[in-house]
């Protein structure tokens, strides 16, 4: 009862305070918005006022952000390079030489009905022979044979390239009685994908650790800022500043540290891309391929910026939680 009454008391008082300042809820919200805006600008001003120290922290964050991003982009590029190669990855299904055309067509239609298969092409024994004659240079010898030694082949293009789908598919193709041999010789690509996958996870782990590092660096810097502004914090608390009000400038400072570091990280990646683009296309030219480097892109840029700003905010929040509450007047 007493505490309820007392709560009412507080409410009345804050209402009275609101009335005193002529504040409606709408103007309170707009005032709070203006406070956010002002604090955001002030804290950026403070950072820019001591630009050399700020720049050090920005670069530190940028390096920590850029390193895992470099790795990820490198892997992404390798993957893209791989996927250019595996467009050719078809499964050759060698049939018994006795298999007739109607059965081949029947098999093709059956296989086309399966979800993991994109396309099936029939190469009849005759076509195979013609191709072989044309390309091998053994044409004369082959025409001397009375019987076509080549089997008909079904060229199966699978939809997915990962082993989890391919292994059972290969096995099930082998199970047909008419099938002599199933050949899928892109095992090395599979291995590459396996390695890339592993490297990607490793990169995520490194990224996570470095992100933690960024948060801690920002947190420590904010801790020093809090110490430097101890007098101000005490006075603000004494004149009725809430915890949220007192922590706001520090949270924005953290946000700016993160955002600035993220921006520099993006610039570093862009620079690296520009430097590498030339040699990479020359190398691709040697393989008679066309290959454009995959960069961050617009959305990637904003993602990095957002992520690092959030990291900075998070680091500041950790620090505020630990150090700001400990500062009490008295």
């Amino acid at each position: 009862m007493a505490s309820g009454k007392h709560r009412d008391n507080i409410k009345q008082q804050s209402k009275a305070a609101a009335k005193k300042s002529g504040n409606s809820i709408a103007s309170r919200i707009s005032n709070s918005f203006r406070n956010h805006q002002q604090v955001a600008v002030d804290s950026l001003d403070r950072l820019l006022a001591s630009i050399s120290g700020t720049l050090m922290i920005w670069i530190m964050i940028a390096i920590a952000m850029a390193l895992p991003l470099f790795l990820l982009l490198f892997l992404q590029n390798l993957q893209q390079f791989g996927s250019d190669l595996d467009e050719a990855s078809q499964i050759s299904v060698f049939m018994n030489t006795t298999t007739e055309m109607p059965r081949l067509e029947q098999l093709r239609d059956e296989l086309l009905g399966r979800s993991e298969i994109q396309n099936v092409e029939i190469i009849s024994a005759e076509t195979a022979l013609q191709e072989f004659q044309a390309s091998s240079g053994f044409g004369d010898i082959l025409s001397g044979l009375d019987e076509n030694p080549l089997p008909p082949v079904l060229l199966v293009t699978p939809l997915a390239q990962d082993a989890a789908v391919l292994q059972p598919l290969l096995a099930s193709l082998q199970d047909y009685p008419e099938v002599d041999e199933v050949q899928f010789d892109l095992d090395w690509l599979q291995r590459l994908y396996g390695i890339l996958n592993l490297a990607q996870r490793l990169t995520y782990m490194i990224g996570l650790l470095l992100a933690l590092g960024v948060a801690l660096v920002v947190g420590n810097t904010i801790k020093l800022a809090i110490e430097n502004r101890r007098d101000e914090i005490v006075v603000v608390k004494l004149v009725g500043g809430t915890d949220a009000y007192v922590s706001r400038p520090f949270l924005y400072t953290g946000l700016w540290y993160g955002a600035g570091g993220g921006l520099i990280a993006c610039v570093l990646i862009l620079l690296a891309q520009l430097i590498l683009q030339g040699p990479v296309s020359r190398l691709a030219g040697l393989y008679e391929g066309e290959f454009a480097l995959v960069g961050l892109g617009i959305s990637g840029f904003f993602m990095v910026l957002l992520l690092s700003a959030m990291l900075g905010w998070f680091g500041a929040w950790l620090s505020v939680l630990r150090h700001l509450r400990a500062i009490e007047p008295g």
Binding site: A2, S3, H6, N9, I10, Q13, S14, A17, K237, L238, V239, G240, G241, T242, D243, Y245
Partner: peptide, 22 residues
């Protein structure tokens, strides 16, 4: 001002202090 300070929580503290000049 009629409020028992023993019952004032940490959250209410800033609003309470706004009514006192120091």
């Amino acid at each position: 001002n009629g409020q028992n300070l023993n019952r004032l929580s940490r959250r209410q503290l800033p609003f309470f202090r706004r009514n006192i000049g120091l």
